[in-house]
Amino acid sequence: MENQMNHQPQDGQFAIQASHMDIYYGNFRAVKDCSLEVLPRKITAIIGPSGCGKSTVLRAFNRMNDFIPGCRVEGGILFHGQNIYAPDVDPVQVRKLIGMVFQKPNPFPKSIYENVAWGARINGYTGNMDDLVEETLVKAALWDEVKDNLKKSALALSGGQQQRLCIARALAVKPEIILMDEPCSALDPIATLKIEDLMRELSSNYTIIIVTHNMQQAARASDYTAFFTMDPDRSGIMVEYGETSQLFTRPRDQRTEDYITGRFG
């Protein structure tokens, strides 16, 4: 599909770029011909009805689909000019630079400190671990709430705090891009707004791609929005991609209009 971006960056640099990507589960084509150019240090939301392939696309960005038997990606995803699906690319290295935060907060059953330090340690981090943990928890807007209880189990935190801890854990390995798959669906509205504020804060240094069912969240929290839907053959396709302010006020495609005004189906 033709790229429909209105405002491309002057230097033509994208943080990551899917180009004519097809994703299959066995013989079933789950995503069809997706070209999505994600701008650096911006928040890009992916919205669309259930089954439109938005999480599949998100997981393709850091090869998380490799863990799903029968799943394969055709076409490519360019990151620093290289196809991350090329045979010589180490998926572990990809996932280090492109981190992920999941729907349900999933901290390790360890201390708050260990949750943050773990990724850095297995990546051979040799600096001052206390400093790294503090710096990362500050970035994740959690430090003030946990600084006196770093040895406490992460599982004792509230859902919103656990999710921010998971974001801290992703940040600790110094990624460039953070993928978020419905990061607030298990959180209450206040915890949700805290995550959204945190995303905004982080977007000055990181590129964020978020999949959300909550259209209001996409409208509130993102700079760009991509709308996906299902083709008659049940493949997911990207219908429209543009600035969030434009997509939610003046969508170009009738299918986008029908979805965001709730007149879908």
């Binding site: 209001q216 409208a219 939610f248 003046r250 965001i260 005004t261």
Partner: peptide, 9 residues
Amino acid sequence: QQPMARDLR
């Protein structure tokens, strides 16, 4: 009702 697009306009 959080209207969007045409409804919002």
